[in-house]
Write a protein that binds this DNA or RNA. Structure first.
Lengths: 245, 245
DNA sequence: GGGGAGAGATGCCGC
DNA sequence: GCGGCATTTCTCCCC
């Protein structure tokens, strides 16, 4: 595709706030939170309605370079190079794309007003535990969810039959060392702010790493095998149960 | 664009491992680590050489739905609906895209062999500190970088003029509560494994949150204002200096 | 706007 | 493969 033609089409589609996709050969410089350079190669450049810019390679999930929404975009042409200059203020950064050859340019005004419905987040998991306290223990009584403190944010907290405070930290995936240190910080914070010594800590997750379990035991905390709702259940407990039928 | 024509073009370009971009109206179901549904609207579907699938809305940085590389993709058509079925094993999941109208379909074999050069990562930061120990203190002597332990991974560690061990945790962005708890875990681990009491902890970052600074002080750790190399420096210290000229 | 934490996070590296 | 952790993470939510 002729570069001058691409230049004019691109100017038009960017000003019209169309979404544009350019298959091209280009090189990319970025400077902002870090600094990067990518030499010449074939890539796909996406310019969205809100001036988000994404540059994708032929492989891989993530863009190799990008600029956040609201970026200032200017298109220019000099000799045999079509240049896209992108800049953003928060976070501060600049990206310059030098395009040497355009294979194709597609643009269109897309309309999408639907909202994504999603089930199985950590929030859904803490809701489930709040409604089914037996998942934690026979005598667990939830009091609050999502409590904010200076030292952190508690997923679920309540008490047991012996009057101990119980803090539950949910993870939708395998709990690691960071999950245990997080729980520990919450337990200490509650001990300090409420002025009580008997505070129990519980990790609720579908899995826990061996090091994290060791650390959990060192700190006298407990682990409960709980999976996020409405996802596939593959833990050994349920597999065992299935075999029983 | 005619749906049947799109169906045949897509089958061909997927089998040829071309990269394909479809502007279309579609709905999307996903089930795997979570479960989601997105009703009919205009989107851009990207199928990459390695069978990565990305679905982008007209706005925003991130795809609304996606499948990782190596996904199994099958294209089918029934009545007036073109369907893309995608499945992956690790992580396990399925995604189904029902396409009702195709506005455009572009595909091409892109070639990209260049490697991204990037400066300013946390690794670059710990390298910088290792080479310039004055950034930590007058008497800091680095011994090792990137040391692996059961309880975590130390960025830089060394000792000071008084024989105290010093552990430095680098952050390329604002250090928060998690950074301080991470540092604390490392310090405790080193105290235990080396059997020594005098271990200092230092956070090196361009910024630290107020709560994190409070917690840092409570634990007797220290903060050093250090920015990752080759990035823009905008901290108040430098702004003050500039005013002095 | 700052701060804290999740995400269907992804990707990298080391054991 | 698991585990620990950074990421130009991004995004959401609350204060």
């Amino acid at each position: 595709m002729d570069l001058t033609e691409a230049f004019h089409s691109l100017e038009k589609s960017v000003s019209k706030k169309f979404i544009s996709v350019i298959f091209c050969s280009c090189e990319i410089e970025y400077e902002g939170r870090a600094k990067s350079f990518l030499g010449e190669g074939d890539r796909m450049i996406i310019i969205k309605h809100d001036y988000t810019v994404l540059i994708h390679r032929p492989d891989g999930t993530n863009p190799v370079n990008w600029m956040p929404q609201g970026s200032g975009i200017s298109v220019s042409m000099e000799k045999d190079v079509l240049t896209l200059d992108c800049s953003s203020l928060k976070p501060f950064g600049n990206m310059k794309i030098n395009i040497f050859e355009v294979y194709s340019l597609t643009s269109a005004p897309l309309v999408d007003t639907e909202q994504l419905k999603l089930i199985g987040s950590e929030k859904d998991m803490s809701d489930m535990i709040y409604s089914n306290p037996l998942l934690i223990s026979d005598d667990f009584v939830p009091i609050r969810r999502e409590e904010q403190t200076d030292y952190g944010f508690l997923d679920v907290y309540g008490h047991d039959g012996n009057g101990n405070l119980v803090i539950v930290e949910c993870k939708r995936y395998t709990a690691g060392l960071d999950s245990v240190t997080q729980l520990r910080r919450y337990v200490e914070r509650v001990k300090k702010s409420k002025g009580v010594g008997n505070v129990k800590g519980v990790i609720a997750a579908p899995n826990i790493s061996s090091n994290a379990l060791k650390m959990l035991n060192d700190w006298g905390f407990e682990y409960r095998n709980v999976s996020p709702p409405h996802t596939f259940v593959c833990d050994s407990f349920n597999q065992k149960r299935l075999k029983d039928f």
